[in-house]
Design a protein around this nucleic acid. Structure first.
Lengths: 264, 264
DNA sequence: CTATCTTTGTGCACGCGTTCACAAAGGCAT
DNA sequence: ATGCCTTTGTGAACGCGTGCACAAAGATAG
């Protein structure tokens, strides 16, 4: 998923499988909800249903963390919340910087899920001098010039990029040079980073395109004649290609893709 | 990845593997960039580098679409752009509704990547009557009451949910009842949908937590003593659990997780 | 203390996805 | 026309992830 990810042996050092790590936050969310309702214990079956996964998978996932359940009873909610939090590294506070305070950057700054999960927005950074000093989500936006200073003095190791695609790599380079080793990238670009730096990518456009693919399939199947299957594979190239070229030509900017954000 | 996804035989009807479908948008983006620079052909090696994947993987992916390359030369950029677009269903226009026009909803509405890729924002919908009529990204926000009407009259089959977690399932039910069969969910909840409906989930909090996990690993490894490994697995439960319980107690809302958006 | 019943933890098999490595294919120079 | 050189397309091996099914473990009732 994390495209442009630093290549890594998938299964890290000798620990928890990547797929399991990706589900731990899911379990944690479900468990937190139970905790708030003061539910003392859950069975793997119940918790799996709440998290939307298979119960066998959940049990196997938990087995990587240790034997935290009680046979015949289930799992202690509070205990499990703590164990997963600790495994994910959420018992400490992670200062995070958000670069690119446009629509998306502002949405991220206001996102409550950060503070409640061990993350703290250390700074909001934007390249537009006019933004400097403006408060967003209660925090004054700072200019890009301050980037290195902010990161070093706050010990920031996680950065969020919400800039236009064109600025992303440059911002990324500066973040890495300043000491950031984990990046969450919302810009529609493949980032190049040195070894040891993790990049995860979130791309709205890609998600929608995947949905469109399935949607098209559904429409094609229902309509008796399988429009766009066997026959479709060999569609007439000449005129069609011209059409595609034209579509590409009158596309918006020369930027390839408009950023996920408009940095004021 | 799409948690809460309608369970499906993974490999759909006899076609392209799911993993390949997920990468097609990536290739498409890289190809579009090349197209704009008027590059006539690319080798699998070059394109793979641009998309941030392995070249063998890319070739295998393309092989599912057909034999569109020329040995010794590479792939025709324009032709490939068209073929992938068609395969993804982007040669037609998909009307999309966005429900929940808070910070995130507004960011999505302004997202340029939609229009340039075959998606059209048909309507912006919010539950707050005060929002009705207000223009966001050049489109007047409509009230939730209009939801069914909008979907049916526009033939919308793709919906985006950017509401608070508490409202997500209800909105989802209404969307599905009105005819939507694909949903992109930004709310931090597991959505339950009938068979035949696709749900994809994007969760900022989860991505950050995965980064935090790796970040913690890095920090632990460098510090000689493997803090949080063998010994860590057996951390003292008593006092610690209390601590976790306390942390859970003073958490923000009873909502479990603050939404990815503040719907005005 | 014993029997029963529930639920965990996991051995095992299967299938998807990834990667290697190479034969086939085609362009291009001579 | 012929041979060389580049690049595709894919057969095959491997590894990870998933899900089944069950034995072990423990709680609970009598």
């Amino acid at each position: 998923m994390a495209t442009g990810r630093t290549h890594r042996p998938a299964t890290r050092s000798r620990g928890i499988p990547e797929a399991t790590v990706a589900r731990l936050p899911l379990y944690l969310r479900a468990l937190t909800a139970l905790s708030e309702r003061s539910v003392p214990t859950v069975s793997s079956e119940e918790l799996a249903a709440a998290a939307g996964v298979n119960s066998a998978k959940l049990r196997k996932d938990f087995s990587y963390l240790g034997s935290y359940g009680t046979r015949g009873v289930g799992y202690d909610v509070e205990y499990l919340v703590y164990q997963i939090s600790r495994e994910l590294g959420l018992t400490q506070d992670w200062p995070v910087v958000i670069v690119g305070i446009g629509n998306l950057g502002a949405a991220l700054a206001n996102y409550g899920g950060f503070a409640s999960r061990g993350f703290r927005v250390a700074a909001l950074i934007d390249a537009d001098p006019a933004m400097a000093g403006k408060p967003v989500a209660g925090i004054a936006v700072q200019h890009t010039d301050e980037l290195e200073h902010i990161i070093e003095s706050n010990g920031v190791s996680i950065g969020v990029i919400a800039t236009p695609a064109g600025a992303a790599q440059q911002v990324c380079d500066r973040l890495v040079a300043a000491g950031v080793t984990s990046i969450l990238n919302f810009a529609p670009t493949v980032l190049t980073v040195p070894d040891g730096v993790d990049v995860r990518k979130v791309d709205l456009s890609i998600e929608l395109q995947i949905l469109a693919f399935h949607e098209q399939r559904k429409a094609g199947e229902e309509g008796g004649a399988e429009a766009g299957h066997e026959a479709g594979h060999e569609s007439a190239p000449p005129a069609e290609v011209t059409r595609a070229a034209a579509a590409a030509a009158d596309r918006k900017g020369p930027d390839g893709d408009v950023p996920a954000v408009m940095p004021a």
